[in-house]
Design a protein around this nucleic acid. Sequence first.
DNA 1: TTGTACGCGTTATCAA
DNA 2: TTGATAACGCGTACAA
Lengths: 362, 362
Amino acid sequence: MLFVDSDRRRRPTLDTVAAAVGVSRATVSNAYNRPDQLSSSLRERILETARSLGYAGPDPVARSLATRSSAAVGFMLPQGLSGAFSDPALSIVLDGLASTVDGHDHSLVLMPGDATGGPRPSIVARAQADVMVAYSLPDSAPALDAVAARGLPLVVIDQPVLPGSARVEVQDYLGATLAASFLLAQGHSSFGILTFSLHPDGVSGPVSFERRSAVAFRVSRDRLGGYLDTLEKAGVQPDNVPVWEARGSDRELGRLGARWLLTRTPRPSALLCASDQLAFGALQAARDLGLTVPRDVSVVGFDDVPEAAYSDPPLTTVRQPLAEKGRRAGELALKLLAGGRPPRPTRLDVSLAQRASAAPRT
Amino acid sequence: MLFVDSDRRRRPTLDTVAAAVGVSRATVSNAYNRPDQLSSSLRERILETARSLGYAGPDPVARSLATRSSAAVGFMLPQGLSGAFSDPALSIVLDGLASTVDGHDHSLVLMPGDATGGPRPSIVARAQADVMVAYSLPDSAPALDAVAARGLPLVVIDQPVLPGSARVEVQDYLGATLAASFLLAQGHSSFGILTFSLHPDGVSGPVSFERRSAVAFRVSRDRLGGYLDTLEKAGVQPDNVPVWEARGSDRELGRLGARWLLTRTPRPSALLCASDQLAFGALQAARDLGLTVPRDVSVVGFDDVPEAAYSDPPLTTVRQPLAEKGRRAGELALKLLAGGRPPRPTRLDVSLAQRASAAPRT
DNA sequence: TTGTACGCGTTATCAA
DNA sequence: TTGATAACGCGTACAA
């Protein structure tokens, strides 16, 4: 009696099913993975028995060990998910990526970053994924070394290419140039710049001159550089352009920064914002201060998230193909997984979406 | 020569390192996982050798197989990530969850849903996670059966509790009641309701009477039920209340629906929206039609996402503790993982955040 | 169809 | 204490 009661409730395995049906483990495995390797009647019998035994199919981990593939794509973020998901641009990219890999029966493992500007190396070392995608990590992120140490293929988005990695990138510098040129052409000569993190230290505030050099995030570097270089070429001294660094790309942080920028003397007649979220915050800050956009101040964003078309006023911004960026990254990941060599990086185009938030200087 | 060149580039394993150091595999394993089990000098020697051999630490998959734990929590979504990430409410919940599990060195595996209203069962069957979290899946989602088949612990958010699962939930019905009561108290008597999906079939449009029954999503069911019941108690016939179902909780879809609602005759003087996103769309639709909120029409949302405080006008909405919801789910998942029994569900509170988008009927 | 050699660790249990 | 032995964990895939 006692013996019966204490029969070990181990979960059934391939062997359990094989024994019950009276075939070998290999055959049961085939029933799941290679239906053509056995008669359909036998297969049906096996599946039926498995069901009755409560066997839910081959254990994913064991299968991964045997095949040396976990059918998952790792996605490394520069920050916690909080920051991540509040950024619609990232959401769109992630969606493009997810739909691509999902279509190939791969799952997505998210690795949020922490204060170091990326996921902790221990997280990366233990993640069950066979290819990693890095999204806008700082150049020196320890997470990248961890990926290299594991020898996993890597796709980078918005980052300098690493040896052996594939890369998706957008012409950020060019985009910034477009934005600045446009405002210059509109007659503006007094600017303020609102950027997101330059270094992975969580600092917000006015940007000192030293801090502008050796910027750790490629995107920030390119956008800021594009703005400043363009202005300088037009005769606007970079030292005279106030720059505010927000800790993240978030509306409220943008509002804070824009409030500072718009209370400088002289007040800038145009704000260059490194993201649409920051720009939305800037629109709000202008309203708070009783300024009208674009009459009193022009605002230009970056990304062209869907909401940019609906803000008040609709946002003039640099458009980049966000969903495409994610899809490309997904395709590259899959390609690397299939053993492909990293192709040369293709740069996605940017363009200026002219709406109502920027106007000629009055 | 040739032999040397062709030396098999297999990745080093514990054995490789053990052999190189001249100790057993177990000792190398201990060097990584139980530093107290060996002298620190030996440990250092092992780690050093591992480094020089290019060994990145124990293989995560093999470790999972041996420990029978993959240190990951799976998150099942009702839709593709597209819909998911465009919903700030979900983002916040997910963030709360992610930070909780991340703090315990667990990773997060995302399982996007498809047309069936949840992830495909095959995805669930193969996911490497040892606990699943279901977010607002329809009651009959096949994904839930797949979880049960695997015998994985389950946490449900915004769903009816399943046998053996833990659950975190919000008083949606009560929240809807608050919103409707408030508008009634303000003197409104002509309403329109804007809801997100009632059934997992991707339909958008006016909601027929039959479609209002047997609603598949608990949240939709409770919110819609709360609105209609409250109105009915106040003498407003549910049949006379136009209801628009949006395919998703998305601003643009909300705009479409609100446009329809606001062009009914007689025009509703108040709109009850099942989410803030839909409400934002409604604000836009009102603007499009030349209506002023709240003078011509009052709008009430649901969720109280951060942006609700900054919309134009700021949104009166039902507040629910989104981040807390995610954290609770994460804690429950961890608890289940540790072998805990599912505690009885705790309901999180809701309240009404009164702002400027709703006013007494003029 | 089947036998069986892996895949790569973890964790008692045991010995020095 | 410190380290070793060996029994799993659960499949996959190839040769027979």
